[in-house]
Protein backbone atom coordinates (compact mmCIF):
# COMPACT_ATOMS: atom_id res chain seq x y z
CA UNK A 1 0.00 0.00 0.00
CA UNK A 2 2.70 2.34 1.13
CA UNK A 3 4.95 1.47 -1.80
CA UNK A 4 2.05 1.76 -4.22
CA UNK A 5 1.54 5.33 -3.03
CA UNK A 6 5.23 6.13 -3.41
CA UNK A 7 5.14 4.76 -6.95
CA UNK A 8 1.83 6.53 -7.59
CA UNK A 9 3.36 9.87 -6.68
CA UNK A 10 6.22 9.17 -9.01
CA UNK A 11 3.81 8.31 -11.84
CA UNK A 12 1.97 11.59 -11.26
CA UNK A 13 5.22 13.50 -11.41
CA UNK A 14 5.88 11.75 -14.70
CA UNK A 15 2.50 12.84 -16.09
CA UNK A 16 3.01 16.42 -14.96
CA UNK A 17 6.38 16.44 -16.73
CA UNK A 18 4.81 15.30 -19.98
CA UNK A 19 1.76 17.58 -20.14
CA UNK A 20 1.66 17.09 -23.93
CA UNK A 21 0.37 13.57 -23.35
CA UNK A 22 -2.77 15.03 -21.73
CA UNK A 23 -3.70 17.10 -24.77
CA UNK A 24 -5.27 14.32 -26.88
CA UNK A 25 -6.96 12.83 -23.82
CA UNK A 26 -8.77 16.11 -23.34
CA UNK A 27 -9.18 17.39 -26.89
CA UNK A 28 -10.38 14.29 -28.73
CA UNK A 29 -13.40 13.64 -26.46
CA UNK A 30 -14.26 17.36 -26.46
CA UNK A 31 -14.02 17.35 -30.24
CA UNK A 32 -16.48 14.44 -30.46
CA UNK A 33 -18.79 16.13 -27.99
CA UNK A 34 -18.94 19.36 -29.95
CA UNK A 35 -19.22 17.64 -33.34
CA UNK A 36 -21.95 15.24 -32.21
CA UNK A 37 -23.98 18.02 -30.62
CA UNK A 38 -23.53 20.14 -33.72
CA UNK A 39 -24.71 17.34 -36.01
CA UNK A 40 -27.54 15.83 -33.99
CA UNK A 41 -28.65 18.74 -31.83
CA UNK A 42 -31.45 19.77 -34.20
CA UNK A 43 -32.80 16.23 -34.51
CA UNK A 44 -33.18 16.11 -30.75
CA UNK A 45 -34.52 19.51 -29.60
CA UNK A 46 -34.68 19.77 -25.83
CA UNK A 47 -38.38 20.74 -25.63
CA UNK A 48 -39.51 17.95 -27.93
CA UNK A 49 -37.34 14.94 -27.01
CA UNK A 50 -38.58 12.73 -24.18
CA UNK A 51 -35.30 11.12 -23.23
CA UNK A 52 -33.57 14.48 -22.72
CA UNK A 53 -35.77 15.43 -19.73
CA UNK A 54 -35.79 19.03 -20.91
CA UNK A 55 -32.01 19.31 -21.26
CA UNK A 56 -30.10 19.86 -24.49
CA UNK A 57 -28.46 17.03 -26.42
CA UNK A 58 -25.02 17.79 -24.91
CA UNK A 59 -26.29 16.39 -21.60
CA UNK A 60 -27.07 13.08 -23.33
CA UNK A 61 -23.70 12.97 -25.12
CA UNK A 62 -21.52 13.92 -22.16
CA UNK A 63 -21.14 10.40 -20.66
CA UNK A 64 -19.78 9.02 -23.96
CA UNK A 65 -17.17 11.75 -24.02
CA UNK A 66 -16.24 11.21 -20.38
CA UNK A 67 -15.81 7.47 -20.96
CA UNK A 68 -13.82 8.12 -24.11
CA UNK A 69 -11.46 10.36 -22.16
CA UNK A 70 -11.16 7.59 -19.56
CA UNK A 71 -10.13 5.07 -22.21
CA UNK A 72 -6.75 6.32 -23.36
CA UNK A 73 -4.83 3.99 -21.05
CA UNK A 74 -1.92 6.37 -20.55
CA UNK A 75 -0.62 4.36 -17.60
CA UNK A 76 -0.05 1.32 -19.79
CA UNK A 77 1.97 3.27 -22.33
CA UNK A 78 4.30 4.54 -19.62
CA UNK A 79 4.52 1.03 -18.18
CA UNK A 80 5.49 -0.55 -21.48
CA UNK A 81 8.09 2.15 -22.05
CA UNK A 82 9.52 1.26 -18.67
CA UNK A 83 9.55 -2.46 -19.52
CA UNK A 84 11.27 -1.84 -22.85
CA UNK A 85 13.78 0.56 -21.27
CA UNK A 86 14.66 -1.76 -18.38
CA UNK A 87 13.63 0.49 -15.48
CA UNK A 88 10.89 -2.00 -14.71
CA UNK A 89 13.60 -4.53 -13.77
CA UNK A 90 15.14 -2.05 -11.39
CA UNK A 91 11.79 -1.76 -9.64
CA UNK A 92 11.44 -5.54 -9.63
CA UNK A 93 14.82 -5.84 -7.91
CA UNK A 94 13.39 -4.08 -4.83
CA UNK A 95 11.64 -6.04 -2.06
CA UNK A 96 8.18 -4.62 -2.71
CA UNK A 97 5.07 -6.61 -3.62
CA UNK A 98 5.09 -6.87 -7.42
CA UNK A 99 1.54 -5.67 -7.48
CA UNK A 100 2.50 -2.23 -6.13
CA UNK A 101 4.12 -1.49 -9.47
CA UNK A 102 0.74 -1.97 -11.16
CA UNK A 103 -1.25 -0.29 -8.39
CA UNK A 104 0.97 2.78 -8.26
CA UNK A 105 0.22 3.53 -11.88
CA UNK A 106 -3.49 2.90 -11.37
CA UNK A 107 -3.64 5.37 -8.47
CA UNK A 108 -2.00 8.00 -10.63
CA UNK A 109 -4.46 7.21 -13.42
CA UNK A 110 -7.32 7.80 -10.99
CA UNK A 111 -6.01 11.21 -9.98
CA UNK A 112 -5.41 12.20 -13.58
CA UNK A 113 -8.90 11.11 -14.56
CA UNK A 114 -10.47 13.07 -11.70
CA UNK A 115 -8.84 16.20 -13.07
CA UNK A 116 -9.81 15.56 -16.68
CA UNK A 117 -13.37 14.46 -15.91
CA UNK A 118 -14.04 17.44 -13.65
CA UNK A 119 -12.66 19.77 -16.29
CA UNK A 120 -14.80 18.26 -19.04
CA UNK A 121 -17.94 18.48 -16.92
CA UNK A 122 -17.10 22.10 -16.13
CA UNK A 123 -16.83 22.82 -19.85
CA UNK A 124 -20.16 21.17 -20.57
CA UNK A 125 -21.81 23.16 -17.78
CA UNK A 126 -20.75 26.17 -19.79
CA UNK A 127 -22.52 24.57 -22.78
CA UNK A 128 -25.77 24.58 -20.77
CA UNK A 129 -25.68 21.05 -19.31
CA UNK A 130 -27.11 20.66 -15.79
CA UNK A 131 -26.34 17.79 -13.41
CA UNK A 132 -29.80 16.76 -12.25
CA UNK A 133 -28.41 14.93 -9.20
CA UNK A 134 -26.63 18.05 -7.92
CA UNK A 135 -23.23 18.43 -6.31
CA UNK A 136 -23.27 14.97 -4.73
CA UNK A 137 -24.15 13.54 -8.15
CA UNK A 138 -21.31 15.48 -9.73
CA UNK A 139 -18.85 13.99 -7.25
CA UNK A 140 -20.25 10.50 -7.81
CA UNK A 141 -20.02 10.97 -11.58
CA UNK A 142 -16.37 12.02 -11.38
CA UNK A 143 -15.50 9.13 -9.06
CA UNK A 144 -17.35 6.58 -11.17
CA UNK A 145 -15.68 7.66 -14.43
CA UNK A 146 -12.28 7.77 -12.75
CA UNK A 147 -12.60 4.28 -11.29
CA UNK A 148 -13.57 3.15 -14.77
CA UNK A 149 -10.42 4.85 -16.09
CA UNK A 150 -8.39 2.80 -13.60
CA UNK A 151 -10.08 -0.42 -14.65
CA UNK A 152 -9.62 0.31 -18.32
CA UNK A 153 -5.96 1.24 -18.04
CA UNK A 154 -5.51 -1.81 -15.81
CA UNK A 155 -6.61 -3.98 -18.74
CA UNK A 156 -4.24 -2.07 -21.00
CA UNK A 157 -1.44 -2.68 -18.49
CA UNK A 158 -2.18 -6.39 -18.76
CA UNK A 159 -1.48 -6.17 -22.48
CA UNK A 160 1.70 -4.26 -21.72
CA UNK A 161 2.87 -6.91 -19.24
CA UNK A 162 1.97 -9.73 -21.59
CA UNK A 163 3.42 -8.36 -24.82
CA UNK A 164 6.16 -6.09 -23.42
CA UNK A 165 5.90 -4.10 -26.61
CA UNK A 166 4.70 -0.53 -27.07
CA UNK A 167 3.33 -1.21 -30.54
CA UNK A 168 1.31 -4.19 -29.32
CA UNK A 169 -0.02 -2.25 -26.35
CA UNK A 170 -1.24 0.55 -28.55
CA UNK A 171 -2.81 -1.92 -30.96
CA UNK A 172 -4.33 -3.78 -28.02
CA UNK A 173 -6.10 -0.61 -26.92
CA UNK A 174 -7.95 -0.65 -30.22
CA UNK A 175 -9.49 -4.00 -29.32
CA UNK A 176 -11.38 -2.30 -26.51
CA UNK A 177 -12.47 0.62 -28.65
CA UNK A 178 -15.56 -0.98 -30.25
CA UNK A 179 -16.89 -1.53 -26.74
CA UNK A 180 -17.20 2.23 -26.37
CA UNK A 181 -19.32 2.55 -29.50
CA UNK A 182 -21.47 -0.57 -29.24
CA UNK A 183 -23.37 1.40 -26.63
CA UNK A 184 -26.43 3.62 -26.59
CA UNK A 185 -24.18 6.60 -27.19
CA UNK A 186 -26.47 8.50 -29.61
CA UNK A 187 -29.94 7.48 -28.43
CA UNK A 188 -31.30 5.40 -25.55
CA UNK A 189 -31.21 1.64 -25.93
CA UNK A 190 -34.91 1.26 -26.77
CA UNK A 191 -34.46 3.46 -29.85
CA UNK A 192 -31.58 1.44 -31.30
CA UNK A 193 -32.01 -0.98 -34.20
CA UNK A 194 -32.49 -4.54 -32.99
CA UNK A 195 -28.92 -5.84 -33.65
CA UNK A 196 -27.43 -2.76 -32.01
CA UNK A 197 -29.76 -3.09 -29.08
CA UNK A 198 -28.65 -6.68 -28.55
CA UNK A 199 -24.99 -5.71 -28.84
CA UNK A 200 -25.43 -2.81 -26.44
CA UNK A 201 -27.32 -4.95 -23.95
CA UNK A 202 -24.51 -7.51 -23.93
CA UNK A 203 -21.82 -4.84 -23.69
CA UNK A 204 -20.91 -4.08 -20.06
CA UNK A 205 -19.81 -0.53 -20.95
CA UNK A 206 -23.48 0.24 -21.68
CA UNK A 207 -24.34 0.01 -17.99
CA UNK A 208 -21.51 2.32 -16.97
CA UNK A 209 -22.68 4.82 -19.57
CA UNK A 210 -26.31 4.55 -18.47
CA UNK A 211 -25.34 5.01 -14.83
CA UNK A 212 -23.41 8.17 -15.69
CA UNK A 213 -26.27 9.44 -17.83
CA UNK A 214 -28.85 8.85 -15.13
CA UNK A 215 -26.92 11.18 -12.81
CA UNK A 216 -27.02 13.92 -15.44
CA UNK A 217 -30.58 13.53 -16.73
CA UNK A 218 -32.62 11.87 -13.98
CA UNK A 219 -31.06 12.39 -10.55
CA UNK A 220 -30.31 9.36 -8.38
CA UNK A 221 -31.67 6.25 -10.11
CA UNK A 222 -30.79 3.34 -7.85
CA UNK A 223 -31.29 0.69 -10.54
CA UNK A 224 -29.10 2.36 -13.15
CA UNK A 225 -26.41 3.22 -10.59
CA UNK A 226 -26.52 -0.29 -9.14
CA UNK A 227 -25.99 -1.92 -12.53
CA UNK A 228 -23.12 0.47 -13.31
CA UNK A 229 -21.51 -0.24 -9.94
CA UNK A 230 -21.79 -4.01 -10.43
CA UNK A 231 -20.16 -3.81 -13.86
CA UNK A 232 -17.32 -1.61 -12.59
CA UNK A 233 -16.75 -3.84 -9.56
CA UNK A 234 -16.78 -7.04 -11.60
CA UNK A 235 -14.47 -5.66 -14.30
CA UNK A 236 -12.20 -4.24 -11.60
CA UNK A 237 -12.00 -7.54 -9.74
CA UNK A 238 -11.21 -9.38 -12.97
CA UNK A 239 -8.54 -6.86 -13.90
CA UNK A 240 -6.90 -6.99 -10.46
CA UNK A 241 -7.00 -10.79 -10.35
CA UNK A 242 -5.38 -11.11 -13.76
CA UNK A 243 -2.80 -8.44 -12.91
CA UNK A 244 -1.72 -10.24 -9.73
CA UNK A 245 -1.32 -13.46 -11.66
CA UNK A 246 0.55 -11.91 -14.52
CA UNK A 247 2.97 -9.73 -12.58
CA UNK A 248 3.79 -12.40 -10.02
CA UNK A 249 4.70 -14.75 -12.83
CA UNK A 250 6.54 -12.13 -14.84
CA UNK A 251 9.82 -13.71 -15.90
Amino acid sequence: MNHSLTLGLRAMRETLRTPDSLVPTLLIPLFFLVVNIGQAGRIFPSDDTDFLNGQNYAAFQLPSSLLLAASFGGAALYLVEEIEGGYFDKLRATPIPRMSIVLGRLYAEFVKSVGITALMIAISLALGVRIESGVAGFVLLVVMVSIWAMVFSGFMQLIALKTRSAAATQAGGLVFFPLLFLTPNFVPRNLLTRPMEVAATLNPVTYVMEACRSLILDGFDATALGKGAVVIAAAGALMLGLSVRLINRYD
Binding site: H3, T6, R10, E14, G86, D89, T94, P95, I96
Partner: peptide, 26 residues
Protein backbone atom coordinates in the same frame (compact mmCIF):
# COMPACT_ATOMS: atom_id res chain seq x y z
CA UNK B 1 22.18 -5.21 -9.29
CA UNK B 2 23.06 -3.05 -12.27
CA UNK B 3 21.89 -4.77 -15.42
CA UNK B 4 23.43 -4.67 -18.87
CA UNK B 5 20.95 -2.12 -20.22
CA UNK B 6 21.19 0.60 -17.58
CA UNK B 7 17.44 0.90 -17.17
CA UNK B 8 16.74 4.36 -15.82
CA UNK B 9 13.67 6.55 -15.90
CA UNK B 10 14.50 9.50 -18.16
CA UNK B 11 11.82 11.74 -16.65
CA UNK B 12 13.18 11.71 -13.12
CA UNK B 13 16.24 13.50 -11.87
CA UNK B 14 19.18 11.45 -10.62
CA UNK B 15 18.37 12.43 -7.07
CA UNK B 16 14.70 11.49 -7.41
CA UNK B 17 15.60 8.11 -8.84
CA UNK B 18 17.96 7.30 -5.98
CA UNK B 19 15.51 8.58 -3.37
CA UNK B 20 12.68 6.50 -4.83
CA UNK B 21 14.87 3.40 -4.92
CA UNK B 22 15.84 3.96 -1.26
CA UNK B 23 12.18 4.44 -0.29
CA UNK B 24 11.29 1.16 -1.97
CA UNK B 25 13.96 -0.54 0.13
CA UNK B 26 12.10 0.68 3.19
Amino acid sequence: VALQEAGLDPRQTGRELLTLQARLFG
